[in-house]
């Protein structure tokens, strides 16, 4: 099941915060594909993505006891860690400034090794998302650009960029909202 792990069982969370390795292994097994896909999406390189995965899950393990479920869901918190680790890793590799050509083929460049069957239908829906929205999500979320940087990079006014970003998320909400189980 690809459905997101927004609300985790409190007893499971307790085990995780207690640094229970079995619980952490269950967490890893249920989230590794998503996180690896995210790492791969940002880094675009398998070796780098594997390092990001390693560093991210070690960070998650070390900081799990500090996780505040009042602030966000566990999965949101984990994706933030993976995303930030990946972006830092990219910046360290001086890969921050990607070429516009790369952006156009961005999705195509990253091979989806083992897409989940349930996700295929949604994936098709997302493909219907206007390229400009996909682009803004890629730049803002996957590449970690600030709005200002993205505005300059895409050569569009800041206000336009912000509107696109909000619309992109609204579109996503519409897509996934309709398909929520």
């Amino acid at each position: 099941m690809y459905f997101l792990l927004i609300h985790i069982d409190s007893s499971e969370l307790f085990l995780l915060k207690s640094k229970d390795k079995k619980a952490f292994e269950r967490l890893y097994d249920s989230t590794c594909s998503m996180m690896y896909g995210l790492a791969l999406k940002i880094s675009k390189r398998k070796i780098l993505a594997e390092d990001i995965m390693h560093d991210s899950y070690v960070k998650i393990w070390k900081n799990i006891s500090n996780f505040d479920e009042e602030r966000s869901s566990l999965l949101t918190w984990m994706t933030q860690i993976v995303r930030n680790t990946a972006i830092d890793s990219l910046r360290n590799s001086n890969n921050k400034h990607i070429q516009s050509d790369d952006m156009i083929v961005y999705f195509k460049d990253v091979p989806v090794e083992n897409p989940k069957i349930d996700a295929i239908g949604l994936s098709e829906l997302v493909k219907n998302l206007k390229p400009e929205y996909q682009e803004v999500i890629n730049i803002l979320y996957y590449q970690g650009f600030t709005h200002q940087e993205a505005s300059e990079y895409l050569d569009i006014p800041l206000g336009t960029l912000k509107t696109r970003a909000r619309t992109a998320l609204s579109e996503l909400k519409l897509i996934f909202g309709k398909n929520e189980h």
Binding site: C32, H54, W61, T76
Partner: peptide, 29 residues
């Protein structure tokens, strides 16, 4: 709703990592 939409969006790109990564992570832990 926004976060979950984004997570679902991210999840579409899920790719199974190799077992070596898991072994490496748990070894470090």
């Amino acid at each position: 709703r926004m976060q979950s939409s984004l997570i679902k969006f991210i999840e579409l790109e899920s790719t199974s990592p190799s077992q070596e990564i898991k072994a490496r992570i748990f070894s470090s832990i």
